[in-house]
Design a protein around this nucleic acid. Structure first.
Lengths: 249, 249
DNA sequence: TGAATAGTGTCTATAAGACAATATCCC
DNA sequence: GGGATATTGTCTTATAGACACTATTCA
């Protein structure tokens, strides 16, 4: 039975005009990270339109009226970089009034993690989608913009405030490492403890003590030995482990 | 000297039409938290308009075209709740397409922390701005919606997805406690170790070991003894401490 | 003087860093 | 066998929890 309040609300909604005020544009930008040769890499796309035409940027796009923010991030990643079904998490929203010269654009940013082995091949757009190596000029979880370098070690200048977004992604990842098995998303199904440590070291940007890393990981209860070992390695082969959670899903 | 690309970009920007596509509305909502009698409290305002007219909600409002997100949050808090100059940090952005019945509204949420002693008196809007006690039905940093209770211990049903926002604020706060002296914002200038422990226990929702809490805090280097002691307490008065950072600012 | 909490000292269990010894693979 | 890394074990040090004891205020 509709109450008087319900009826009043219905009437209100029928006459509501969302365009009575000017609205900002809302975009999503995604920092897709992976590890190559023990370094953090980020997927960049070359801008095909003004403004900042030709500059490297994180894949991004405007949010459609009928899709959730998470869905928008997944769509953008699939459309602009050919990657689908990856791990995504919201990062931060950037909204400085002048961050985009076109108009007011508020960007809701995400970071994505993918194991190198699970990357879909990059779309052949004449080299307009590439990975760049991420150099972090600060320690710990201090935060700040980071720098991207192309395969020839040339520094890449990123469009808009994307260096800040990337920095936020690294900062978040470092924080998560303290209380979540982040390695999950960045490693293949099975892996050695050494590779897991490589992941942690790449994210934290510093060397870790091997003995205590090993003990800590085994004691965490997150890992499960597979019984299998690596092979063809020129030294004693290490046992392969698996994340327990992942296999439960 | 403008390059050809600059000129092309200028031309592009002159003809850019931000309204070629429909835009969502963008709001900020703020969970202002304080501690009363060892419990977390949140500031709520009664909605004065449709939809959800009369329901309790977090103070919020639409983002203006020329203000940053942080500024919008500060403004909303001042206008709707009479609180200014408080500690604010961005929390998360909520954007489910149907979270608001009016139109697509994306809410960029913030949490604020204020010491009870520093609260400005609530505006006398006939009791339409009040604090409610926050009950957290989950442990650790698991997350999920939380429940609000009015001073007569009646459960309050919050408008929209505000129970989720509040839950996210508590979750974030619990996480921050591991690596930041969050107590800062929730205590007066000087305080006893016992009061600092009360803050931590309220946020975490569980009792802490007194001895090791004391040791950990003193060893952290964040605290500075003032030499002064509390008084009129009916037992041995404890020494008053101060946060080092705060006094350096 | 007694109630109540502050503050100190000590003992034990646990986790981290360092280092040595042994194991196992490929060449 | 030699090179290289895995794996196990031990020792030392730092930290957390538990508990006992002393200190200081107000009523």
């Amino acid at each position: 039975m509709p109450t008087r309040n319900d009826q009043a609300e219905d009437a209100f909604l029928r006459t509501y005009d969302p365009d009575a005020y000017e609205h900002p544009s809302v975009a999503v930008d995604v920092a897709l990270l992976t590890l190559t040769d023990g370094d953090i890499s980020v997927l960049l796309v070359r801008r095909q339109e003004h403004p900042e035409l030709g500059k490297w940027s994180l894949p991004g796009g405007f949010v459609h009226m009928d899709e959730s923010l998470d869905d928008a991030a997944q769509r953008v990643l699939a459309d602009k970089a050919g990657q689908s079904g990856v791990f995504l998490e919201q990062l931060y929203s950037f909204g400085a009034p002048d961050r985009d010269p076109r108009t007011r654009v508020i960007s809701i940013t995400y970071y994505a993690l993918v194991a190198e082995e699970k990357l879909q091949p990059l779309p052949r757009d004449g080299g307009d989608v590439e990975f760049a190596s991420v150099h972090v000029p600060w320690a710990g979880e201090q935060g700040g913009p980071v720098e991207a370098y192309d395969p020839r070690d040339q520094r890449i200048s990123l469009a808009f405030d994307h260096a800040d977004i990337l920095g936020m992604a690294v900062k978040r990842l470092r924080g998560k490492l303290n209380y979540t098995p982040v390695g999950f998303q960045l490693l293949p199904e099975t892996f050695t403890l050494r590779r897991l440590q490589d992941v942690h070291e790449a994210i934290l940007g510093r060397k870790l003590n091997k003995d205590s890393f090993r003990r800590r990981m085994l004691a965490s209860g997150e890992l499960e030995p597979t019984g299998a070992h690596e092979s063809e390695v020129g030294h004693r082969p290490a046992e392969l482990y698996r994340f327990k959670e992942r296999s439960a899903i």
